[in-house]
Design a protein around this nucleic acid. Structure first.
Lengths: 355, 355
DNA sequence: TTGAAAGCGCTACCAC
DNA sequence: GTGGTAGCGCTTTCAA
């Protein structure tokens, strides 16, 4: 492992000069630059970033704490973050909190010890992102969701509008009995989607019976459970709005087990699009979040904060950035008008008997 | 930002003592340990890992360079890696090479500069993992695949056996016209799967017409293209083995467009299982790789190397570890006997009856 | 324009 | 047991 002194010796200059060419200081004579670069090549020299970090008090590393690496929603976000980081000379340390507040807290401590310049965080429901102590450590940008009452930098989908638009789509198709499987309601994404849904219903005076509102937790299992409950009601809904991808999957399983056909017997609208959505039968109608873009912009916001923080320490005074990105409704085959479904139901019943 | 000196001053001890309690040196008197810990709590002190790293010449960080964060196969691997790293006090810097050898090379340089202790790498087809210079930098463990002729530490699925078993399943169902959509053949995973497929065919004297072998590149688009080609043949295969998840998706799209039904018209066997496999219609028969386990063990192998390397520098002498994990065939609904679909084909029907 | 030297926060050696 | 201190590889001031 060679050091800057080895290069200096080989190039017959001082360490300061080597450092100068490493940092593209324009004051170094071209002839020396050449000699130094040759020496570096000869020894396959790569300057030690950790020594550099210690000296300049900056690691060019950010931490990213997410809730589930396995969820395609987050992996798209990661890709956006990683791309943007990479092209700005930053590295990202990936941490998977698995929705566990304790793990989240531990990761945040670890990242602090590692002196990351900033953190991107998908907060768990009882997140430490609400403690002022955490914000004293490093700049933080929240992604996807914020705890209720949180004030700080964040980027997310405009969940209210997205849910509103999706629900309007169901209403416009003629549905009046619409069920919803919600997420956690103490996090903005869960709550805002429910509120957008409610708003659309109220505007058209569509009632929302208690039983049509099933509270899930964004996990597959809860989608399954809520799906069973909804479809086993005396009067099941003619359409269901499922508030994230995993729950939609659970819901589909429930439908399968109950032999309830979609969209003939019930229309399904899912939040979150993913690569495979178009390969389900029926092809899923979804609300697509701009995931990659969310990751990219999250990193940009953080970079901007780092820039402005550079000299003044953690500048409490800087303005808070909150970005809400528009989602896109992708209408495919899992939503249809409820009128057509009654006829189909009869057909299916007949077929069922024949079988 | 407090330093070890602040703690020393507050606890009225020397920095050496503080360092002692930080590193659980048993020689420090309990009374002092207490005082020091109190001081740390009071100041929310977290020791600076970058200073520590510089001193001990170890960062407790590993780099992970993968080909596509967006592919569920890799995200499961990541989760295994991250979990194992976390519980051993290691952090992982995530890099997405996007299957680009140049990016891979850049990431490897960057990781070297950051003085990561080791690297987990999913190599691109013309990977720098074959250059001895790279191996001089840090220990590397390859994941999922190795370039042809590579000798070094690696962990992957036993692709040959897995493909062999899967193909046997198709043959046992009565298929004699079996197509394959392969991956890159200059990487072990692509080649081994083809070879396992071939072996099973040869054992039963099943011919493999040239046209039944379509070479893809593990991307969705190639699965689509190859699928179209296969099913538009004068005599299309009665079963297709698709060598990874993305290509299977492309294949499904091709079938949809051609209005070819699965499994009635053609059986599909896909390599790679994923959470949604059971939600397709039909439910996909797949070969499931032990992804999480692969990540976990990859990290374990690397940790073991780090352990043995600790003192002796990069010990060229240490033995090479190559692990091949067993895959699991998950038979669902996309594969079925060809007899049921072609009543007119007497040969197959006869075979079916004999079976 | 170049070089000598101090010092970032920590560990580890050595003296007490 | 505890403390003083050199030094990890780099940047940056200051003097030449």
């Amino acid at each position: 492992m060679y050091t800057i002194r080895d290069i200096a010796r080989l190039a017959a200059v001082s360490v300061a000069t080597v450092s100068g060419v490493l940092n593209n200081k324009p004051t170094v004579k071209p002839a020396l630059v050449d000699r130094v670069k040759k020496a570096m090549d000869a020894l396959d020299y790569h300057p030690d970033q950790v020594a550099r970090s210690l000296r300049v008090r900056r690691t060019c590393t950010v931490g990213m704490v997410i809730a589930d690496v396995t969820n395609p929603f987050f992996t798209d976000v990661i890709r956006g973050v990683e791309k943007e980081a990479q092209s700005n000379g930053y590295s990202v340390i990936l941490c998977d909190s698995n929705e566990d507040p304790t793990l989240e807290r531990n990761y945040l401590s670890m990242l602090f010890s590692r002196r990351v310049d900033g953190v991107l965080l998908v907060p768990t429901s009882s997140t430490s992102a609400q403690e002022s102590r955490i914000h004293k450590r490093f700049p933080i940008v929240l992604i996807d969701r914020v705890p209720l009452g949180f004030t700080g930098d964040a980027i997310m989908t405009d969940n209210f509008s997205a849910a509103y638009d999706g629900t309007r789509h169901l209403i416009d198709l003629g549905h009046r009995q619409i069920g919803i499987i919600t997420g956690h309601l103490n996090l903005s994404n869960g709550l805002d989607r429910l509120e957008g849904f409610r708003k659309a219903l109220q505007e058209e005076n569509v009632a929302l019976p208690d039983k049509y509102l099933q509270q899930g937790d964004f996990q597959l299992e809860s989608g399954y459970r809520c799906g069973l409950k909804l479809m086993q009601l005396p009067i099941p809904p003619t359409a269901i709005f499922s508030c994230n991808n995993k729950m939609t999957l659970g819901l589909m399983r429930a439908l399968g087990e109950l032999h309830v056909h979609c969209p003939e017997a019930v229309s399904i609208l899912g939040f979150d699009d993913f690569e495979w959505s178009a390969y389900f039968t029926p092809r899923l109608t979804t609300i697509a979040q701009p995931t990659y873009e969310m990751g990219r912009q999250a990193m940009q916001i953080l970079l901007r904060k780092l820039q402005s923080t550079k000299n003044d320490g953690l500048s409490e005074g800087s303005r808070v950035t909150v970005v809400k990105l528009k989602a896109e409704l992708r209408v495919r085959d899992s939503t249809t008008s409820p009128a057509t479904r009654r006829d189909m139901q009869k057909e299916n019943a007949a077929i069922e008997i024949i079988n």
